[in-house]
Simulated scan of single mutants.
Amino acid sequence: MKRPGPLLTLLAGLLLGLFMLILNTTTGTETASSTDRKQPPAASAPPAPTKSGASPKQSPKPSPSPSAVADASYAGRTDDDSSAVSVSVRDGRAIAYFCDGHSKESWLKGDVKDDGTMRLTGTDGAELNGTVKENKRIRGSVDIGGGHYAFTADRARKPSGLYRATATVRGAKIDGGWIVLQNGRQVGVVTRDAKPSAAPVIDPRTGAVTVDGQQLTARPVTP
């Protein structure tokens, strides 16, 4: 009986080769799969440039709203040069004084809108309507005692402006108002127990004034 040695050896070699081929194929597949799983995500593409090559422009910022009227004092005369008007503006409020330097006068007050317009009122139906223009002057009119007076009041620089003094002198109630104009001229009225008359001159640097022999102090007026 012949020994099958060479045939078995050949068959064993073939089986071993087939096993190694299968093993290599499996290992390569697993390695490729692992490599695919470990790949980092692709970076996102940059935004496409505009036709001009520049980045899109941002929308322009809205322009700021007009600022409120500045705090200031104004002084001037009526168009007919018969009287003086002064207005003091603070924090959206205003107080004004109209006087002819003899017997006609009125204190008025009210609000100032952001656009500079104002309507101020006083006793006996007195009314001032005006507008602050560029924080430099007030143009308006005063209606008082049946009269209508257009005026222009420029922004005042100290010591020009509006002053007032109140006191009791020799039993009489004193209320004085003064408008000091840019040229130094003064226009004022003092009432004694509601009886008006021309006011004496004040020292605008200190506000000192003598009324009926008694020294008083006229102070700048603010709302």
Rank of each mutant, 00 (worst) to 15 (best):
M1I: 11
M1N: 11
K2Q: 02
R3H: 04
G5I: 11
G5T: 12
L7W: 13
L8I: 09
L8Q: 01
G13K: 04
G17W: 14
G17H: 10
T25V: 14
T25S: 13
T26Y: 15
T31C: 08
A32V: 15
A32T: 15
S33V: 15
S33T: 14
S34P: 03
S34H: 13
K38N: 03
Q39K: 13
P40L: 08
P40C: 10
P41S: 12
A42P: 11
A43N: 15
A45C: 13
A45P: 10
P47R: 08
K51S: 05
K51V: 06
K51Q: 05
A54E: 12
S55Y: 08
P56V: 03
Q58K: 08
Q58P: 05
Q58E: 09
Q58I: 06
Q58F: 09
S59A: 15
P60V: 03
P66G: 09
P66F: 06
P66Q: 08
A70I: 13
D71N: 15
D71P: 09
D71K: 09
A72R: 02
A72N: 05
A72G: 01
A75Q: 07
D79A: 15
D81L: 09
D81G: 03
S82E: 12
V85R: 00
S88R: 04
G92T: 03
A96P: 08
C99A: 06
G101T: 01
H102I: 10
S106I: 05
K109F: 09
K109N: 06
G110M: 13
D111V: 13
K113A: 10
G116K: 00
M118F: 15
M118T: 14
L120M: 03
T121G: 11
D124V: 04
G125S: 07
G130W: 07
T131R: 11
K133A: 10
R137A: 12
R137F: 08
I138V: 11
I138R: 09
G140E: 02
S141F: 12
D143H: 15
D143Q: 15
D143L: 15
D143I: 15
I144Q: 14
G145H: 14
G145C: 09
Y149I: 14
A153I: 10
D154H: 12
A156E: 13
P159C: 07
S160M: 12
G161I: 06
A165E: 04
T166Q: 08
A167H: 07
T168S: 07
T168M: 06
V169W: 05
V169M: 02
V169E: 00
R170M: 05
K173E: 02
I174H: 00
D175G: 01
D175P: 00
D175K: 08
G177Q: 03
W178Y: 11
W178L: 08
W178P: 04
I179Y: 09
I179D: 06
V180T: 01
V180Y: 00
Q182T: 12
N183T: 00
Q186E: 07
V187L: 03
V189R: 00
V190W: 02
R192W: 00
D193G: 07
D193A: 07
K195E: 00
P196D: 06
A198P: 01
P200D: 03
D203I: 05
G207Y: 06
A208I: 08
V211H: 03
Q214N: 12
Q215P: 04
L216M: 09
L216C: 06
R219F: 11
V221M: 12
T222F: 13
